[in-house]
Design a protein around this nucleic acid. Structure first.
Lengths: 338, 338
DNA sequence: GACTGGCACTCCCGGACTGGGAGTGCCAGA
DNA sequence: TCTGGCACTCCCAGTCCGGGAGTGCCAGTC
């Protein structure tokens, strides 16, 4: 495939993204200074269509890119356009004002939605990849205990335990020391094993209570592996003709299904810094017309993913740059708060 | 206004809600067994239109209710239809499986959306109306302190404080005792006053650190009066012809603006068990075509509001029943966890 | 006086039709 | 290999039109 054909493809992608209308040979020849006539462009277009990069909505209409065409564009043609200095400053300031983890995530997801004009999705730092920073036990009544777990990524989980026997304040102190000794600094993925042996380490008189506590702890670290995600920018779905009414419904529904969102984010290859899945590269049926751009973030290692979701016809260079920049800033912030 | 006219209005509201189409005199006379002819119904309709309860989209079309008409329907004609026993059981089971406050709110908002087929909104228990159950101080480094505040409604807030001087473990214990002594059981609304006097109560050597801590505490209880809300069921906006594309955008946008949502929920008269605001009774422009049904909830006193939001053309008896029932169950659950 | 059947009238809605325009494919010539 | 020309295709928006649903009013009946 020669260079000019690639240029024609680039022209089609760029024009179609900005106008949302099939682009014809004449427009390409004129606006993009290829130095050839419309007829020549037509020949190239015929080739590109044959090869599956573009298609015609109907005879005698202009061409629009296929998923395969976008893929080629992203891989070989799109030069990522970095954020402006002003944008970078704004991102930085907005994120550094966050007061806690919840706030970081909320701000991040809004920022992404605003920068990209798409729907943004941010996964909370995964519990599995976090470690225990501190466990707090608070005695509510002699037989009722509140457990608060704080992770190094700033997540706070709380649970209640009903105890089989009464517990004195001194007992609570002892249990608190025990669980912290055993669990502090440990990765949550390793926690279940440790918790299993916990009761055996307590004084015999405390053993019943300790195992009740262990059961709840186990639930805290394991069962709630279900991950949380934040979403923003749903209104962007209605942007110009982003989605025609018909295909909007299932997407709005999916946005409220953690499972689906996690699939979209998680399928991202964790090794890659940034993943772009275009159209039917998403294996979920409702997202055949959708592109998902995701990036991992975290202090050092990846503890979660974030991304945006929009029509395949999106501004790839801009979107990719925004997602990458925001993921980096968030990682920095988590690093600082470590 | 005689009884038959009211019956005609009821027929129009009910038919229009279920068919979404202007209803004509013939349909009313036939289906609703009023024992009179279509011509008579026409006379009544002319009266109802004159009085502002119904209107004609255009000459020679059927009638649709106005906001005033819905209002009359809700106030005088709608007999609330209670949930079925099966529904009640399902609600109860689903909510009682919640593991913490976050989970209660998440489940509640989904449940409401599903029961009513509308957009549901649930406010987290207001910090202002909660009291402090426990304050936990965790020393991260000698000059960095994590503060975790737990309220009696189960909310957990965390903050970090940078300290002017180093703090020993014993000092942390002392401060923890001090702040808990002073604040435990106090309502958050009263907390700022108490916190202001906090530093003065500490040992002179701890005073600088205590006031740094106090500043952060103040921020925790006061600044974050900004309330949180959960939303679900946005996909229901696309239901049949619920909202025409044009009016959907601003509503999706509003759903991501806490401020607007709080306005919608909060304007609810706190004394009323249940509030229905129809069409232009909402003072927000984008919600002129929208009805909001809200209820307060809480253990004993009201600590937050929940509700649903949909087109004025909604199933009032069913929606009202659902909101009321869910609010009651949630209140019960909070009562139990107190 | 309240109700009813009849009737003329209004207006929306969907389908059929049409002309213009944008874009294509192909071909012959440079 | 590229280009200008040309016939062809098909969408789109506008117009026109008939059917149908619903109304308002009126004169007649109980």
């Amino acid at each position: 495939m020669d260079d000019r054909k690639l240029e024609v493809l680039r022209a089609i992608v760029e024009d179609y993204v900005s106008t949302q209308e099939p682009v014809g040979s004449k427009a390409v020849a004129q606006k993009h200074a290829l130095g050839v006539s419309a007829a020549t462009v037509r020949n190239d277009m015929a080739y590109l269509e044959e090869a599956g990069y573009i298609q015609q909505p109907h005879t005698s209409a202009g061409r629009i890119p296929t998923a395969k065409g976008y893929r080629l564009f992203v891989d070989r043609l799109g030069k990522i356009k970095p954020l402006s200095a002003a944008e970078r400053r704004a991102v930085h300031r907005f994120l550094s004002e966050a007061i806690d983890l919840d706030d970081v995530v909320t701000r991040t997801v809004r920022l992404l939605a605003q920068l990209t004009h798409q729907v943004a999705v941010v996964q909370y730092p995964s519990l599995n990849r976090s470690s225990v920073r501190h466990l707090e036990l608070v005695s509510l009544t002699p037989t009722r205990l509140m457990i608060v777990m704080i992770t190094d990524t700033g997540r706070v989980e709380q649970r209640y335990a009903e105890l089989p026997a009464e517990l004195s304040e001194a007992d609570v102190l002892e249990l608190r020391r025990l669980v912290n000794e055993q669990l502090q600094g440990r990765r949550l993925a390793d926690a279940p094993r440790i918790i299993a042996g916990l009761a055996a380490l307590a004084r015999p008189e405390l053993r019943d209570n300790a195992s009740a506590l262990a059961r709840v702890l186990l639930d805290t670290v394991a069962a709630r592996t279900e991950e949380r995600v934040a979403v923003a920018g749903a209104a962007n779905l209605t942007r110009d003709g982003n989605f025609f009414a018909g295909s909007m419904r299932p997407i709005l529904e999916a946005l409220e299904e953690e499972v689906v969102l996690m699939q979209l984010l998680g399928r991202a290859d964790s090794n890659a810094l940034l993943t772009v899945r275009i159209g039917d590269e998403n294996e979920i049926d409702d997202f055949r017309e959708t592109t998902v751009v995701t990036a991992g973030y975290g202090p050092g290692s990846v503890v979660g993913h974030m991304g945006v979701l929009g029509p395949t016809r999106m501004d790839y260079p801009g979107t990719i740059a925004a997602v990458r920049a925001v993921a980096r800033y968030v990682s920095e912030i988590l690093e600082q708060n470590r």
